[in-house]
Nucleic acid binder design. Structure first.
Length: 420
DNA sequence: ATTATCATGAGAGATCTT
DNA sequence: AAGATCTCTCATGATAAT
């Protein structure tokens, strides 16, 4: 079918089904036109709806499409599940094992292109956790999981601030229009700041002046503050962060506040990840062996557990001793039947160690992790130096270890395909 | 020895204006 | 269409306070 004819047919279909043009284009390119428009949909390192210059000197073809779907909804979110969609995975990306990789969506240019190329040319799925909870969290996910028949964790978390934090509602001024929170970070606003804000508001009797409102709103947005009393704002507490991120209450109890905020700010949003992992439930009714790299406070483990997927053997690689203790405590408190193997430094994990695990546990069913974002994150003024940065370069250890399993190495692939 | 506070912008997208 | 303006970001390191 010619391209114009295809678009025309599409227009009819859209008007008949009242589905947004963007979604329909998206689906059609996946299901029908993937041969002529390859690869479809997402342009790497481009999380906007606007068109931009395509990346230069990239080895895989870029296809400009006239209109893109809302790119921060990936292959669908519960409110807009495009469950009929299937995607074409590069054959060398097909498992076992299943793999799942996560990092911040807004990186320096070219980072997601590199990540995707190393991970077998699988296209990133960019998702904002605002579709799952009351807090923004824009992240990219590269994985080889099926995307049909996903389902969300229950109960669904509240999607508004007042729903998630009911006690704030009575204190929330009418002139603060926020209905959702910004991204949960690793640092919080100071008590001094909340005091300054209170003083500014107290100095006005009744309605604050426009200048004061502007100042307060600016600080509230910058530091993600909530209303906890008359003229009084406060940063989120750890347990509130835990709830927003989908963790059990007091999940990170027992470590000092600084570490607690840092670990939470670095964590997965559990509902989002669980939505993506939900397709594994029917495939592994008797449980999974999981290799969890950069485990942190165990977002992946909690997601699988909350999905009701039994954890058989979990190898958890995490450099922070306090984060390891959080996961270990959770493992014990939830009476896990499986075995938890803890490893500190991922750089100490060599081929022999991997081989030993394989002979002991058999195959890993899932390799999951989000590598450090320190050198990618926008908030970093000091060392936002990309994927080669001090911490973020640990991505290549994720790739190195993942590549020791079923997936075919690129060099090997080149040799194979160059044979006559 | 810990903990709290503060200063340190760029970069890119989103939205508005012309 | 193009430019101006607004908005937000899984942060780091020095210094003050406890």
């Amino acid at each position: 079918m010619g391209h114009k004819a295809h678009i025309a047919e599409l227009a009819d279909y859209i008007s008949a089904n009242q589905i947004s043009k963007e979604q329909q284009l998206y689906e059609s390119f996946i299901e029908k036109d993937s041969s002529t428009l390859s690869p479809p949909l997402v342009r790497y390192n481009d999380v906007s709806k606007k068109k931009r210059k395509p990346p230069q000197n990239e080895s895989f073809p870029m296809q400009r499409i006239k209109s893109t779907p809302n790119i921060m909804k990936g292959f669908g979110v519960p409110s807009e599940p495009w469950n009929r969609v299937e995607r074409i995975l590069p054959w060398r990306a097909v498992g076992p094992p299943y793999f799942y990789y996560e990092n911040v969506a807004n990186t320096p240019k070219g980072v997601w292109t590199t990540i995707s190329r190393f991970l077998y040319d699988v296209q990133p799925e960019f998702v904002d956790s605002i579709s799952f909870c009351a807090s923004v969290r824009k992240r990219g996910y590269v994985h080889n999981l099926p995307i049909c028949n996903r389902f969300p964790l229950l109960p669904r978390p509240p999607l508004t601030i007042h729903g998630a934090l009911p006690s704030t509602e009575s204190w929330w001024p009418i002139w603060d229009p926020r209905t959702h929170l910004n991204c949960i970070l690793t640092c919080i606003g100071s008590a001094k700041l909340t005091e300054r804000i209170k003083n500014a508001l107290d100095s006005c009797d009744g309605e604050p002046t426009p200048q004061v409102k502007r100042y307060v709103l600016q600080e509230c947005r910058k530091w993600n503050l909530i209303w906890v009393g008359k003229n009084r704002v406060a940063p989120l507490e750890p347990r509130e962060m835990e709830a927003l991120l989908g963790f059990p209450e007091d999940h990170t109890r027992g470590i000092n506040m600084k570490e607690r905020y840092k670990a939470l700010g670095n964590s997965f949003q559990v509902d989002t990840v669980a939505y993506h992992l939900s397709v594994l439930k029917e495939r592994f009714p008797r449980g999974m062996n999981v290799l969890s790299m950069f485990s942190g406070i165990g977002g992946a483990e909690v997601a699988l557990y909350r999905l009701g997927i039994p954890l058989k053997n979990v190898v958890s690689i995490e450099i922070s001793a306090t984060s390891r203790s959080v996961l270990r405590n959770w493992w014990q408190q939830t009476n896990q039947r499986g075995r938890l193997v803890e490893v500190g430094d991922i750089q100490d994990v060599g081929p022999e160690q991997v081989a030993a695990w394989l002979s002991e546990f058999g195959e890993f069913d899932l390799v999951i992790g989000g590598s450090p974002c320190n050198n990618l994150a926008g908030g970093n003024r000091v060392s936002r130096n990309g994927l080669e940065g001090e911490e973020s370069s640990l991505f290549f250890d994720y790739y190195r270890i993942l590549n020791q399993f079923g997936a075919v190495d690129k060099n090997e692939l080149t040799n194979l395909t160059s044979l006559p």
